[in-house]
Computed example of a mutant assay.
Amino acid sequence: MRPTVISNLKDTSRCMQEEIFGPVTCVVPFQTEEEVIERANGIQFGLCASVWTTDLGTAHRVAHKLEVGTVWTNCWLIRDLNMPFGGIKASGIGRESAKESLNFFTEEKTICIKMT
């Protein structure tokens, strides 16, 4: 599939509400930082996000407010396999890669016994 940019969408459109796994991005204008954070967090998914800015303060402030598992700043899909990766909300549970995988793929069992 060729890279695709979709614009002029409403926040309620399917493309804005669902995860699209492919070379597709939706571009929608916004007025304020608070507005764009609220809109980004207003969906049921939270795998990844990207913040594009020339201001380091903005990058940190927005990244901490986004409800996603990974935030890239001024880049996309740069990933060290030693760092945890995974989403929140309906985008998955737990983290993969590095030591986080041990807990995610471990099934613990508790056995309680009282001897009389």
Rank of each mutant, 00 (worst) to 15 (best):
R14H: 10
P29K: 10
E33Y: 04
T32H: 08
F45G: 02
D11P: 02
R14I: 11
E35K: 13
V51S: 14
C48R: 05
V51Y: 14
F45M: 03
D11F: 00
P29N: 07
V5Y: 00
N41D: 07
V51C: 13
E35A: 12
F45A: 04
I37F: 10
S13T: 15
I20Q: 15
I20W: 13
E33R: 12
E33T: 12
F21W: 04
S50G: 15
V24Y: 03
L47I: 08
F21H: 04
E35R: 14
Q31R: 15
W52N: 05
V24S: 02
T25I: 15
L9F: 03
E33A: 07
S50K: 13
C26D: 01
T32A: 10
R39H: 07
V24A: 01
G22A: 06
V5S: 00
V5L: 08
E18V: 07
F45Q: 07
S13L: 05
V5D: 00
G22D: 10
M16S: 04
C48L: 06
E34V: 01
I37R: 08
V28Y: 00
L9P: 00
V51W: 14
C48D: 09
T25E: 08
E18R: 09
A40N: 08
F45I: 05
V51Q: 14
T32I: 11
A40D: 05
T4Y: 13
G46C: 01
G22N: 07
V27I: 12
A49I: 01
L47D: 03
R39S: 04
C15N: 07
I43W: 05
I37L: 08
E35S: 12
